[in-house]
């Protein structure tokens, strides 16, 4: 550590510089925003969500569907992972036994001790 710098393995991090940069960018954004149109009217179509040019659905998009494609693509893996999580306590004890064996085997055959 040297002064306000957090030394990481191959660089450094200064949160105060980041904060200063953020403040400057925020000011620029506010300046650009202030030069925008003043014709905004509450309660009109202007306030509707942008939905690719179509009228938005009456209900909000369900948050569960936010990553629909991503979740669908990973379904096989998550289903496989879920199949481990049976909720049966015997399986928990089995996992514990497996862990003991893994650690013992790794240390004994890995030449640690």
């Amino acid at each position: 550590m040297t002064g306000p710098l957090l030394i990481t393995a191959s660089g450094y991090w200064n949160p105060l510089v980041w904060l200063a940069a953020f403040a400057i960018i925020l000011v620029i954004v506010l300046i650009i925003r202030s030069s925008g149109t003043k014709r905004f009217k509450k309660g009109t179509d202007q306030t509707l969500q942008f939905f690719s040019g179509n009228r938005p659905p009456a209900d909000n998009v369900d948050p569960d569907n936010l990553y629909w494609g991503f979740s669908r693509k990973l379904e096989r893996y998550t289903a496989w992972l879920r199949s481990w999580h049976t909720g049966i306590v015997n399986d928990y004890a089995f996992a514990f036994a497996v862990l003991i064996i893994i650690i013992f085997a790794a240390l004994a055959f890995g030449g640690v001790l």
Partner: peptide, 12 residues
Amino acid sequence: LLDVAAISLIAS
């Protein structure tokens, strides 16, 4: 090797 057994059990 006893140390290995002990550390395996404790670490688990």
